[in-house]
Design a protein around this nucleic acid. Structure first.
Lengths: 236, 236
DNA sequence: CAGTGGTCTAGACCACCCA
DNA sequence: GGGTGGTCTAGACCACTGT
């Protein structure tokens, strides 16, 4: 048993939360109320809350309060099932907000796809929700030749579905990178969380079956909102 | 530009660290010294350090101080290259310490492999280092029939190399799960970090080409020490 | 406007690491 | 045994949220 008080507090809060989550409707009492209940200061209380936040049990919405985190979304970044499909398949409600549509160059995308630095892209930035909680923001950089009128028709649907259905692309080869991160002030603001909150960054470069570059994307997830799962068969 | 002082501090420290990393030999000055240099308190200074820790730029060794983090290890959990091989291939020095060897049952492993709850396993617990920094602890649960004398001969080498070379197993099918976590007090102690430090948990269940269960393992990585990369070709 | 979380101060004591 | 990080107190003010 650990002796630091904030670690004991963590356990007591964990118990309290599992007991009262439904009664509280997923929202924790105010920090000052909790600090008083446990006869400690807000600093120590927040240290305990931060522990539970790191575990993914609770999260906070910037300046709004602490909330019990829902179950993680199971996600396989190696498959191209659309967000809407796999969220629905898990009995959750998906939603997408388009934040930006533009055409411009982007160095990182160009390098990831092996194109010249000044290569223009169709850029889509969108925010995606599960059960009305914003869980990720994402930027997609699509090679314009592969999807000429993309920006005119795009309104939040599955991009990969469009690429396959409308333009007949085979998304055959992909290079995926995942790293933990602290959310940038911009990403944090768009996700309504405090800057520096823990996140997971997933980047993908996608090529077709003739190794032609199609698309590059960067996802920024809240760290507690997903569980990555990959199923593989056959020798590697 | 953010206005909170600790965020400005974060930027100043980031600059200071990149400038003086080699001069400091990777170790930051004492918190009190830094707080005085920036005319603030340790609390605020630590808030800034925690930001950089979340980004993976620096880390701390419990009660020892703050250190500049080395480059992340690139790791593909879908391949069965041994730890020693891919660490060496990146010009780094691998090392493994065996913490425990025993035979006993383990509920999680049994369920992941579809075996009875009381199924016994050969259990190996090991700690692995990159350039003398402990970066992960790991527990492996091997079905004894697949590797009968494993515990007698094991001394830190690649387990998958053994399974393939000595017992001729084909590690054909694997189910992989990755989630962010806060390191448990035990894992944190074994990694010499503070309890609750951010980590990444990777679990795998491995079956052979006839769907017979071989092995289940759980890895606990320091969040800042790896970059997961997966390369895929062919339609999914 | 009241209440909330976010930020910050100026201390303090302790356990532990290292010389 | 001196210095370190880890923990904790008892306040304060501010920006923002929600009513």
């Amino acid at each position: 048993m650990p002796d630091a008080y904030y670690l004991q507090l963590t356990e007591q809060l964990r118990y309290l939360i599992t007991q009262h989550a439904t009664q509280w409707e997923g929202r924790l009492p105010a920090e000052r109320a909790l600090a008083e209940r446990f006869s400690t200061t807000r600093v120590t209380l927040r240290q305990a809350l931060a522990q539970l936040e790191g575990e993914g049990l609770i999260h906070r919405s910037n300046r709004r309060g602490w909330f019990v985190s829902p179950a993680r979304l199971v996600y396989d970044p190696t498959r191209d099932a659309g967000f809407n499909d796999y969220v629905s398949a898990q009995g959750r409600q998906p939603r997408t907000a388009v934040l930006k549509l533009e055409t411009r160059s982007h160095l990182t995308a160009a390098r990831a796809l092996g194109l010249p630095d000044d290569q223009p892209f169709h850029h889509i930035r969108r925010r995606r929700y599960v059960d009305d909680r914003a869980v990720l923001v994402e930027s997609l950089w699509v090679v314009p030749e592969r999807a000429p009128e993309l920006l005119d028709i795009y309104s939040g649907q599955s991009l990969w579905g469009l690429l396959r259905g409308r333009w007949g692309h085979h998304l055959a080869n992909r290079s995926i990178r995942m790293v933990s991160e602290a959310l940038s002030p911009l990403d944090a603001e768009e996700l309504l969380v405090t800057p520096g909150a823990a996140g997971l960054n997933i980047c993908r470069a996608i090529f077709d079956d003739q190794q032609r570059p199609i698309e590059y994307d960067e996802e920024h997830w809240l760290h507690d909102s997903l569980c990555i799962r990959v199923e593989l068969s056959g020798q590697q």
